[in-house]
């Protein structure tokens, strides 16, 4: 599995951990009252911030672990060559940008479907708090779908155009 596929998996795991932490926090009795939309929105913003921070920290740790892994695997070789190997894996070239573009496109579609679902729910008389959660969930699902699409494209291949 390529470095970029592993990086995608790590991001997805970080995202899932954030969503899990949110669910655990809310179910543990810390949920605002049902009608307090402002409190719910603030809570979601806090967890979005936590999620972004978690992804950054986990990505840094993954990067370090990857470099150590390559260094251990290539320990018989020259240090400069190992450094080049690690650097080459992390270069973002045209193929990585193309895959990032295509997987983002797929992720946005998934998130968009979720937003439309939230609007349909609102139009059907569902409470605003539930719709807010559908939107929050759709961003999480969109991110997950983007990661999966990225992994598939990295492993199976992609064409220009």
């Amino acid at each position: 599995m390529s470095y970029n596929s592993k990086k995608n998996i790590v991001s997805m795991v970080a995202g899932l951990l954030t969503v899990t932490a949110y669910i655990v926090y809310v179910c543990a009795g810390n949920a605002p009252t049902t009608d307090d939309i402002v409190a719910w929105a603030r809570l979601m913003l806090v967890f979005i911030g936590i999620g972004v921070g978690a992804v950054i920290v986990i990505q840094i740790l993954f990067h370090v672990a990857f470099a150590i892994g390559v260094a251990v695997k290539e320990r018989d070789k020259d240090g400069a060559k190992t450094e080049k190997l690690v650097a080459s894996s992390m270069v973002e070239d045209e193929r990585d940008k193309l895959i990032s573009l295509k997987s983002s496109h797929i992720g946005y579609i998934a998130a968009g479907i979720g937003v439309v679902a939230a609007l349909i729910a609102l139009a059907s008389g569902v409470s605003f708090v539930v719709s807010l959660h559908v939107i929050f969930g759709s961003f999480a699902v969109g991110s997950l779908v983007e990661g999966i699409a990225g992994i598939i494209l990295h492993e199976r291949g992609v064409r220009n155009g």
């Binding site: 390529s2 470095y3 970029n4 080049k84 190997l85 080459s88 894996s89 992390m90 270069v91 973002e92 070239d93 045209e94 193929r95 990585d96 990295h154």
Partner: peptide, 10 residues
């Protein structure tokens, strides 16, 4: 990869 300015994966 280095000569072509791409990654080894590419």
């Amino acid at each position: 990869a280095e000569k072509a300015g791409a990654s080894r994966q590419t």
